[in-house]
């Protein structure tokens, strides 16, 4: 059973998650006109920057986050930004969009100059997230858990982060049982996606390095 306190916690997190989305004018640009590969790249960079800003605003609203050490806050955000971004993108790409929009978006990503060996695992991840059919609360909580990962580089007070993360894990576990009673392994499968996310983020770092070299 989810306690009243836990319900309130979920509400705060989901409200913040909904309030902090990429601004419409930035998102709209993705669906406009044809761009060259370079313009596509710049546009995706702008999107990524916007996503990080939105992520920080969301994170500030996670109960307890601002009471963590300031440098630990930065380490957590730095360590999770890319993963949180992939989660949000998966959610966007799996949403039912007006006909043709998904294709335009996919095409844009494919034409941005990102190498195929990175694109394939990325789209595979988006697909595997889509197959979970997460409810909205679960998406917001999973993102929160990603952000509150204690073993990110340079986090000093791991125990404080762990305590916050465990509070959210406990709610998510209960929520999974409630929303997916026919699938007792659902919570474990959600956590499994976090491992996939780490792998993807590792690929991403490699990809950035090769870009810098070029």
């Amino acid at each position: 059973e989810i306690t009243k306190k836990q319900q309130a916690l979920v509400k705060v997190i989901v409200d913040a998650y909904d309030r902090h989305q990429i601004p419409q004018d930035v998102a709209k640009k993705l669906l406009q006109d044809q761009y060259s590969a370079e313009e596509n790249f710049l546009l995706l960079t702008e999107m990524a920057t916007s996503q990080v800003q939105v992520l920080v605003e969301f994170t500030k609203n996670i109960p307890g986050f601002l009471s963590l050490d300031r440098e630990d806050q930065i380490a957590l955000l730095k360590g999770s930004a890319v993963e949180a971004m992939f989660l949000r993108s998966a959610q966007v790409l799996n949403k039912k969009m007006p006909s043709g929009h998904t294709e335009v978006l996919e095409e844009r990503i494919r034409k941005s100059g990102i190498s195929e060996e990175f694109i394939t695992p990325m789209f595979n991840f988006y697909k595997s997230i889509g197959e979970l059919h997460m409810v909205h609360e679960e998406q917001a909580l999973l993102t929160t858990i990603t952000i509150l990962t204690p073993d990110r580089p340079y986090v000093k007070d791991q125990l404080a982060v762990e305590r916050l993360q465990e509070t959210i894990l406990d709610v998510l576990r209960k929520m999974c049982l409630l929303h997916h009673p026919q699938d007792p392994q659902y919570f474990a499968r959600l956590l499994g996606r976090l491992t996939e996310l780490r792998t993807l983020s590792h690929y991403h770092a490699e990809m950035l390095t090769s870009w810098r070299v070029n």
Partner: peptide
């Protein structure tokens, strides 16, 4: 523009300021 900043700079700026205001 913000897109010229590195990840850590974007995070620091966003943590200090409030984009909603």
């Amino acid at each position: 523009p913000a897109s010229n900043l590195g990840l850590e700079e974007i995070i620091r700026k966003a943590l200090m300021g409030n984009l909603e205001e």
